[in-house]
Design a protein around this nucleic acid. Structure first.
Lengths: 182, 182
DNA sequence: AATTTATGTCAGCCATGTTGACATATCTTG
DNA sequence: CAAGATATGTCAACATGGCTGACATAAATT
């Protein structure tokens, strides 16, 4: 039979309860925690498979995606969004530039800036990957009514940290505030 | 001003439309795609911060989580769930065993098997991390009604590949089928 | 003119994934 | 029982994509 024991109803995590500042016994959202794990795993898996054919990895996808979606994004913005170091970004960005998926344009106001744009080649890649992911999402939403879809969107938004949002998040959340320095 | 150009309504990805087998112009779920990215980033970020204090990484968390949740999980099951190689698993599993977060018991029926169990120390770690993530989830669900929560759960389930589910997914989806060989 | 900012780059380290080869113990089967 | 299959562990090498630290350049700001 199953050698998995599911009887974890009343969690036995009383052992070191002293160091447990948050939740009381038993009310963990194991369901959502695990669903998020598997859903995200398969969601990004769609793109991962395709990317192999291009010799790219997830890092390239993330860069391409946001450059395509927010044309003219500055390098600094991209660093905020991806939350990686410029050295890490530099590595993949260089490849995408060299291979003609992205082009840089010098900023008009500030000529130190390198504004990033997807080339047609880059757009095609993003569209292909977004197509796969959209297919999965569309399938998953098929039997869910508009109120349900709204709840899903609301939930995902509420899962995101709102303190110190980057430019892309400001766009997504439509934050008009956030001192427009520059 | 904003140097992000949002005018991506009518996507200009017509360039290499020949190689676009999937979706027609314009109907990508950019909203959900990006919300999933940011939501998951911040969701796992909770755990990542805590893990540093233990000298562990995400890989350790994933192993601990599933071992705790499904006591007596076999190594082979874990490999199915995590979809990594046994060498990768071996590295983190060895540390967790050495440091007393997990113990192994020899299988009763099959003495080749190593059944995995979280020790109290391991349970405490999992509980701490799950507490953080549960807090975030609870916050995000706060203003959503039961129908909405059901839709969210349904959506996440539908995002997961159902072909060839591993033991944990069988548990989650309550699949009674799947020939119980062994 | 001096300083700060935006970007790029070199060098090396770490975590975590991969493949391939092989060892051991144990179960299953002819 | 002997042979083969299975479950696990381990060694070695390599790839990806994070990281830190140091430093260079050009352009903006003060």
């Amino acid at each position: 039979m199953a050698d998995i024991n599911f009887s974890k109803g009343s969690v036995a995590s009383d052992s070191q309860e002293a160091a447990s500042p948050g939740p009381r016994a038993g009310e963990f959202r194991w369901d959502i925690i695990e669903l998020l794990f598997f859903a995200y795993r398969d969601f990004v898996g769609d793109a991962d498979n395709e990317l192999e054919a291009f010799g790219f990895g997830r890092a390239h996808h993330r860069v391409m995606h946001f450059v395509y979606r927010y044309p003219g994004l500055k390098v600094a913005d991209l660093l905020d969004v991806l939350r990686i170091t410029k050295q890490s970004l530099g590595r993949v960005l260089k490849q995408l530039l060299d291979e003609g998926y992205i082009i840089q344009k010098t900023g008009n106001n500030d000529r130190r800036q390198r504004l990033l744009y997807a080339t047609p080649k880059g757009e095609a890649l993003v569209a292909k990957l977004a197509g796969l992911q959209t297919d999965r999402i569309t399938r998953a939403l098929r039997d869910i009514n508009p109120e349900g879809v709204a709840a899903i969107s609301e939930f995902l938004r509420a899962m995101i940290d709102r303190d110190d949002p980057d430019k892309v998040l400001e766009a997504i959340f439509g934050i008009g505030s956030k001192k427009p320095r520059e």
